[in-house]
Design a protein around this nucleic acid. Structure first.
Length: 178
DNA sequence: CCAGACGTTGTT
DNA sequence: GTCTGG
DNA sequence: CCAGACGTTGTT
DNA sequence: GTCTGG
C-alpha cells in the first residue's frame, strides 16, 4: 500500500512530465506527504482540460456526512475498486494521477518495531500513482476535493522477502542496535 | 502511514 | 486500545 | 424489507 | 448514493 510519499521535483518539471499546468500557485516540494494534506493531483476540469490542482489525500465520498471518513480512505484496492460503495462512482468518472518522486513502506520486524523503506526510481524521476477523486459539499463552507491512491498486489521487485535486501541491517534493527 | 492524544467546567 | 491530526 | 456501513494492511 | 447483513 502507500501511506506516505514525497514530491519535490520543481514545478516546471512536474508540468512538463504530466503535460498539464498547475491551476493555482500552491506548490511546494515536500519530503513527507501524509494523509490529510493537500497535494498536487492531475485531473480533468469542467472545461475538459487537464490541469494540476491541490486535493486533500483521503477520499471523502460525495454522500458522506462526516469528512473524517477520508482518513481511512487513503488507498483503494484495484481488485475491488468497482464494487466498493466509496469508490465505484469515482471509478467511473473521477480518475486522476498523483505525481510523486518516491514513497514509503514499513516492514514490521519480529521485535514489533517498524523499519521504513523508501522506494523510488533509480534516477529519482517522477512517477504517477493511479488514483480517484471525489467532490464533497459540506453543510457550510467550501467544497472539498479529495483523492485516494490505488494499490495492487506487490510485484517481485517489492515482495518483502527478496534475497537481495539487506538482512544484516534488518537483524541489527531487530536487536535494537539501529 | 505514524505520532500523539485520549476530558470537562469554568476562569483568565 | 483506539481515535485524531498531520 | 430496513438499518447501518461505506477502507486497507497485515497479523492472529 | 449504494451495498451488506440481519
Amino acid at each position: 500500500m502507500c501511506g506516505r510519499y514525497t514530491l519535490y521535483s520543481d514545478k516546471k518539471t512536474i508540468e512538463k512530465t504530466f503535460k498539464a499546468p498547475f491551476r493555482d500557485d500552491f506548490y511546494q516540494p515536500r519530503y513527507n506527504i501524509a494523509p490529510g494534506s493537500v497535494n498536487p493531483v492531475v485531473l480533468m476540469g469542467k472545461a475538459r482540460e487537464v490541469g494540476i490542482a491541490g486535493l486533500r489525500w483521503g477520499l471523502v465520498p460525495s454522500w458522506a456526512d462526516d469528512e473524517n471518513v477520508g482518513y481511512k480512505m487513503i488507498n483503494a484496492r484495484s481488485e475491488t475498486i468497482d464494487k466498493k460503495p466509496s469508490f465505484s462512482k469515482p471509478f467511473q468518472r473521477k480518475r486522476c494521477i498523483i505525481p510523486a518522486n518516491g514513497f514509503y513502506e514499513w516492514k514490521t520486524l519480529t521485535s514489533g518495531k517498524k523499519l521504513p523503506f523508501y522506494i523510488r526510481l533509480l534516477d529519482d524521476e517522477l512517477l504517477g500513482f493511479a488514483g480517484l477523486f471525489d467532490h464533497w459539499k459540506p453543510p457550510s463552507g467550501e467544497d472539498l476535493f479529495t483523492y485516494t491512491i490505488i494499490t495492487t498486489e506487490a510485484n517481485a521487485l517489492l515482495l518483502p522477502d527478496r534475497p537481495d535486501v539487506d538482512h544484516a541491517r534488518i537483524r541489527q534493527c531487530e536487536q535494537g542496535r539501529e
